[in-house]
Each structure stands twice: as C-alpha cells, then as structure tokens.
C-alpha cells in the first residue's frame, strides 16, 4: 500500500492551500446567508473586483513610491479594505434594501444580475487584456519535512483561519454578533427588541465584501494571470459552503479545505492509480456533496430548522 500513498503529504498540503481559497469564498457566502438567508451568487465577482482594485492600488502606489516594496503592498491592502467596506455599503443599498421583503428567489436572481454587471463592468473599465499581478511574497517557498509550500499559500491558509476565528468569536461573543444572530432568526422580533436591523444588514454585507476582497487580493498572484474568469471560482466554492452547511462559519472553512484536498488528491494520487478518475476529476466534489447531502440534508455542520405550518 505504500506505493499508493507516496507523496500524498504534498498533495494534502497543497490541497489545504487550495481549499483555504474555497473556504474564504465560502465564508463570504456564509456571512450573508447567516444574517439574511440570501445566497449571494456574486461573491466570486466581489472577489474578482477586489483583485482588480488591489492591482490598481499596487500599480498606483508603486508608481508613487518608485518601485515595489512592502509598504506599497500594505498601503494597497489598506486601500482595498477601505474600498471593500464602501462597496459593501453600496451593495446593501442596491441589492438588500429594495428587495427586503421579496421572496428569496428574487434576491438570488438580483445577485445573479449583480454578478453579470460586476463582471462586465470590470472588463469595461480594466479592459479585457489579462493583468499580471505581483505577489508580495515573490516566488519564495518553504520546505519542511519533505513538503514544499509557497509563502503565498501559507499566507492564504493563515488568513482563512484568522478570519474564521475572528468571525466565530464575533458571532458568539460580541453584542453585535448576537444581534446579527437574532436578526437572522426573526428580523421583526429583533427590530422590536431594539436591534437596529438596518445597521445589522449593512454590517453583514460589509463583512462579506471584506472577506471577498481579501480573498481576491490573496488569490490574484496565485493565478499567474488576472482576468475576469477568476469569478468562476465562486461557483467552485459553492459545494464547499454547502458541504459545511450554509450558515456555519467553521463549516465553511472545513468544507472548503475538505473540497480542496479531495480535488488535489483526486487529480494526483487517485488519477495516477485509477485511470477512470481522470474522467470525473472536476465533478468529484459535486458527487461527494450529493452523497453527503443525502445523508445529512443540512450539510456537515448545518442545523436543521424546525418547520411550522
């Protein structure tokens, strides 16, 4: 059996890095779903916009500073974060508020149209030619125990876990977090209890765009070329979010990482030993997902809702 598992460590580590990206996108889905029960189909596009905006800031600041250095990247990241917060407020105004009392169906469609708009608008502004993003960590890699990981990947993994911990703490321990939970349980009752529901929604959208933009900033250098197809990664993060159970923050992270590992291992070791796996490489995550949902209809960490007539 040893031959089957040669080098699987490397694949698992790389899978965790890939999965952390899915996890970050899934976290964006989860935050919005948690408070508003809306699935934001535009999360992948938000990530793409973040990547473009960060690229813009890096180019501008490096022009001002006369070269690339750590400060340029930090300043660009700060700029992107400010942009993300503003962007979240805008999205709250144009998507969430007008559609507050509409059926979920309509809101999903609104997010899909938002996705189309963002993708085309980005391409109209930035032009269709792919950009070449620069990684703040260069091409550096770390070698430990026969496993290689790039510094960028390490940063992505760390970032995913920090954000998860932050939001987990926020939702369970702070006043605002509990207010958000209450809003998601029953917006009207929450309003009557004196919770500023409008503000809650705005903050949720701001957080979600923040997560999206940060994942875009981190992911762009990993893609070698930056173009609008990056947004399609949002689709790949769906199974991750569902697997963990929509609305569960640790679920999003664990689901994402699981999906990343499954994908990498199936492309690597599995398809090396079983030829037929090559045929189903890109749907294996969906198959896993459907099987899991058949057993646990609310995902691994989702909580079944009690239904009333």
């Amino acid at each position: 059996m040893t031959s089957l598992f040669t080098d699987i460590n490397q694949e698992i580590v790389s899978g965790i890095a890939l999965g952390s990206i899915y996890a970050l996108i899934a976290l964006g889905f989860t935050l919005i779903y948690k408070a508003t029960e809306v699935v934001n189909f535009a999360q992948g596009e938000v990530m793409m916009v973040g990547a473009y905006v960060n690229f813009f800031f890096v180019t501008q600041f490096s022009g001002m500073a006369g070269g690339l250095n750590g400060w340029v990247f930090t300043a660009a990241l700060l700029g992107s974060i400010i942009f993300a917060l503003l962007f979240g407020i805008i999205l709250d105004y144009i998507i969430n508020r007008p559609l507050k009392d509409e059926p979920v169906f309509s809101i999903i469609m609104a997010t899909i149209s938002l996705a189309i708009i963002l993708r085309s608008l980005t391409a109209m502004i930035a032009g269709p030619i792919s950009l070449v993003p620069v990684s703040p960590f260069g091409n550096n890699t770390i070698k430990a125990g026969g496993v290689v990981i790039s510094v960028l990947d390490l940063a992505i993994i760390i970032c995913a876990f920090i954000l998860m911990a932050l939001f987990f703490f926020f939702f369970n321990k702070t006043r605002w977090g509990i207010a958000m939970k209450a809003t998601s349980a029953d917006a009207e009752a929450a309003q009557l209890m004196g919770i500023p529901v409008k503000k809650v929604y705005r903050y949720v959208w701001m957080f979600a765009t923040l997560v999206g933009v940060i994942s875009g900033v981190l992911l762009a250098p990993r893609m070698a070329l930056l173009d609008t197809t990056m947004a399609y990664l949002g689709l790949k993060a769906f199974p991750a979010a569902i697997l963990g159970g929509f609305g569960s923050i640790p679920g999003a992270i664990i689901g994402g990482i699981l999906m990343g590992v499954i994908e990498t291992v199936s492309m690597g070791t599995l398809s090396f030993h079983f030829n037929w796996v090559k045929e189903i490489n890109d749907i294996i995550v969906w198959i896993v997902l459907i099987v899991v949902l058949m057993i646990r209809p609310d995902g691994l960490f989702g909580i079944a809702k009690v239904k009333r007539v």
Partner: peptide, 11 residues
C-alpha cells in the same frame, strides 16, 4: 481555468 497543478505535476 484550473489554477492548481500540484496533482498533475506530482504524477
């Protein structure tokens, strides 16, 4: 549109 080729390279 894939971004990760670790599996293939390892193979």
């Amino acid at each position: 549109g894939a971004t990760d080729f670790v599996g293939q390279t390892m193979n």
